[in-house]
Design a protein around this nucleic acid. Structure first.
Lengths: 344, 344
DNA sequence: TTTTAGCACTCTCACTGTTAGAGTGCTAAC
DNA sequence: GTTAGCACTCTAACAGTGAGAGTGCTAAAA
């Protein structure tokens, strides 16, 4: 649905004013702010029409208008632009993220913190899915007389460790046998296929050696599972409680949802590849019916991977959020990509 | 200050009724509930006295009485008992904690979740301080052509890993040289003494070999620091928002404080060794002026170590909280102790 | 046909009363 | 020392009032 130029200009002015002030916008305020060359009565007629068409609502008869989710949608799709960040902004982001560019997890944790700090909203960042990654190598480190650590290095750069325990006394020689035998079986195998049946088949191959292996095989399975699973970094959850638009019950619902990593990961998983904005009821989760989620996926070697997102009120600065997310996304993708390239 | 028997009985009944219902307690309600064999007028006289002495307040003239922090303090010190949990309760806790008794961190994370679930409050659990732990061993795992992982195993059972990068191509032989040379220097050294000067002195010892070492030495230093630092596991923060006594601003302040791991760790560090209750303004943090913290330290080999605590409203079931914390504490201490013994 | 001025209308917000109910403190009698 | 009785106080909930803001509608102007 396209709007006439003047209607669009009025809608735009209302949305921008409301995003800035949070106050319902009246016809008089509007002409003084938007520089329209018509009278307030004309604006009122237009506003009445926009209200009929579902772009605006009045909290009550004698209040100004407030944009609906539909208005934000129209504004974002047809009016708003999100210009790339300035050079200095990008440089700031790069240097901030470069601080702890050790592992994908630490990069993403840093990204979540940075995004939250820059937008003053809650932010989340999910690790790349490891579903089509493979085992690059498995190593072992002795940690005690009966305990050792399995280190699963995945081809996507994720490294997961898991401790295990043996009934017998562990020696460097035993770990070397494990290393040789298990890398023969596991190297190059897709993480997603390392499950209980796979482990059992593998154990069978080792003959009597497998009697020594239940602990280590379980550890490998669990580390592989952890390497495959998406984990979600986050930052700034409490910032949501400082946003005047968000009332207590809404904040509580959103925070409860965000703290449930399982549901959150599932939602992030279903977000589209491109930068996208989900406004209010457009969100798949009922808890977010009064919030907006702006998200984008970072790409590693031009393959869409994990999600970066901010969660905030409907009345947020979408343009700024998108610009920041896209800038951070670019750097995150590059940093993780580098990490993976080097490790291969 | 000791109270006469009847006064104490009345105070006790008021505290218990208020903890249960959250409603100010009036004189009539009280006699019907507490089974007192006196008239409401007598109770009123006693209540007036308790009010003068600072144990009770009235929200307003025509409301019942509400216990003050002083009343909770008196109740906890002189009246309340916290009987040990039943056998089945203890067994439930043991089996729940045994699930992921891999590492101190995973045990403590499990403990925090369990405590939060059982008390319906926010809970935190801090790892043992590593200040007087030593390096048990350092190991290396190759993760890429130019990257490897340093594994610092501390004598307190904490294991920390840190990735590092080298300009040259890493080979198993190089890692072996690192392993030999670095364990000679670091094994048995107190974690707390591994700092920048120590690293520099160490580097000097290696002569020209040290040119290859900046990355690995920094990694060891950071992993040692991480092993030494107290980290705080937590669970159930959003439960605080479901407690009717806690209003929005209070909850926001508490959550903000709890999310600041640095300040939180500092507060936990200063808690006493025994089970203790800090009521309202007794807390060292202003953010907790309207909340209570019940805490205890678990002991490893009969040495007081990290803290387990719950955070909730003044009106909480202190007896239950203490019983649960003490039961969990016992199991946590035993499990971490076992872990450490085995690894040595 | 579109725009505008004017005006009656509606609704909120902040106050002000009013009333029922709960709980108290005080007093005088037990 | 304890109790019955009673006047008193305070809140919560509801209704009423007036100022202020913003609207929709109508009729005239462009």
């Amino acid at each position: 649905m396209e709007l006439a130029a003047r209607k669009q200009k009025i809608l735009s002015a209302i949305v921008e004013s409301f995003i800035r002030t949070g106050e319902p916008v009246g016809s008089k305020t509007l002409i003084s702010e938007a520089g329209l060359d018509v009278s307030s009565a004309t604006v009122r007629n237009e506003m009445a029409d926009l209200t009929n068409r579902g772009f605006l609502v009045q909290p009550h008869t004698s209040a100004g208008r407030v944009p609906t989710a539909q208005a934000y949608r129209y504004y974002i799709d047809n009016i708003m632009t999100a210009p790339p960040l300035s050079q200095s902004g990008r440089e700031y982001i790069e240097s901030a993220l470069y601080q702890n560019a050790d592992s994908p997890e630490s990069i993403l944790q840093g990204a979540a913190e940075l995004i939250s700090q820059l937008t003053d909203l809650a932010s989340v960042a999910s690790t790349p899915s490891g579903d089509d990654s493979r085992v690059h190598r498995i190593s072992f480190v002795q940690t005690g007389s009966h305990t050792a650590m399995a280190v699963v290095i995945a081809s996507n750069g994720i490294i997961k460790t898991k401790l295990f325990r043996c009934e017998f006394i562990i020696t460097p020689e035993i770990l070397e046998v494990f290393d040789k035998a298990l890398n023969e079986v596991f190297t190059g195998v897709r993480l997603s296929s390392i499950n209980q049946p796979f482990i059992q088949t593998a154990a069978a191959r080792f003959g009597e050696l497998s009697l020594f292996m239940p602990g280590v095989l379980t550890a490998i399975m669990e580390a592989s599972k952890a390497a495959r699973e998406i984990s979600v970094c986050h930052s700034g959850y409490t910032r949501l409680m400082f946003i005047p638009d968000i009332d207590f019950l809404t904040a509580r619902g959103v925070l409860e949802f965000l703290n449930n990593e399982h549901d959150l990961a599932a939602m992030l998983e279903n977000l589209p590849i491109d930068t996208s904005v989900s406004i209010g009821a457009e969100n798949s989760r009922r808890e977010l019916a009064l919030s907006s989620v702006v998200s984008t996926r970072y790409t590693i070697d031009s393959k869409p991977s994990g999600v970066l997102a901010v969660i905030g009120p409907l009345r947020m600065d979408y343009s700024r959020a998108i610009s920041i997310l896209e800038a951070v996304s670019e750097t995150v993708g590059a940093l993780i990509g580098e990490l993976t390239d080097i490790q291969q």
